[in-house]
């Protein structure tokens, strides 16, 4: 067993520098690497490019880095529900590259899987395709999209072990598995670190080979963005 376990978030983020490109898992506030984000805020790492489907909300998730003006550029698919984001974007303080959600996921997966680029129909005929190579296959038009390049991927899983194996829960899985192994260093934080051998190999979602560092996360808030319920009767 190759041991990927580190003691805490400080050790896990060793080597993180200003100006780097980060991938961060999560959909809205679901499945975000809360510990890594707090540590990036604490260290005041600046001028970073963040690849993440969303930008958090004003006072949580990546919104914390935005409030602190640590982000130079965001690459996302949807950035609603964040006033500070909208303000920085419209004023030109923040550079934003909006990417279709499926393309965003596949740009991560392509990096993980060793593909330099891929063709997708998403965005053909729209401003997303401007300046990009297009090609026809079987009478339909496709856009060539490049794989992402990133220095660190910060992901959050439900359970993990020292070998770096990960299991995700519910829809907090989202982009997290696609980002594992898609950056130079993948840092996984887990809600529950289990003993090696405890995870059934049949149920592992991400094999440890895609993870360089893993640590037990702390104090997960797991905030709900839209609490919707139905009445009992």
């Amino acid at each position: 067993m190759i041991n990927k376990k580190v003691n805490n978030v400080q050790e896990a983020l060793k080597g993180v520098k200003n100006g780097m490109t980060f991938m961060l898992g999560g959909f809205g506030l679901c499945g975000i690497p809360e510990n890594a984000i707090s540590e990036l805020v604490k260290r005041d790492i600046r001028d970073v490019i963040c690849i993440s489907n969303n930008a958090g909300v004003d006072d949580f998730g990546l919104g914390l880095l935005l409030q602190n003006k640590q982000i130079k550029k965001m690459i996302s698919s949807y950035v609603g529900e964040n006033d500070e984001f909208e303000r920085q974007m419209l004023s030109g303080e923040l550079e934003v590259e909006l990417t279709p959600q499926g393309t965003l996921a596949e740009k991560c997966r392509a990096a993980q899987a060793g593909f330099p680029a891929f063709y997708t129909p998403a965005g053909y005929g729209t401003e997303v395709a401007e300046g990009k190579e297009t090609r026809e296959f079987d009478g339909k038009m496709y856009v060539l999209e490049d794989a992402f390049k990133a220095d660190f991927a910060f992901v959050k899983a439900w359970k993990g072990d020292a070998a770096g194996n990960l299991i995700f829960k519910g829809t907090s899985r989202n982009f997290n598995p696609n980002m594992c192994g898609a950056a130079t260093i993948t840092v996984a934080e887990v809600e529950e670190m289990v003993e090696v051998g405890e995870l059934d190999p049949n149920n592992v979602h991400i094999p440890g080979i895609f993870v360089q560092r893993i640590f037990q996360g702390e104090k997960y808030e797991k905030r709900i963005e839209q609490r919707t319920v139905r009445q009992r009767n």
């Binding site: 959909f27 809205g28 506030l29 679901c30 499945g31 529900e81 439900w158 829960k169 519910g170 829809t171 907090s172 797991k222 905030r223 709900i224 963005e225 839209q226 609490r227 919707t228 319920v229 139905r230 009445q231 009992r232």
Partner: peptide, 19 residues
């Protein structure tokens, strides 16, 4: 459907971020 009150799970949402 949406969960009953008290049974919401932060890890189970839809694309509108609703539980």
């Amino acid at each position: 459907p949406f969960p009953f009150e008290g049974e919401e799970d932060a890890d189970v949402i839809n694309a509108g971020k609703q539980t």
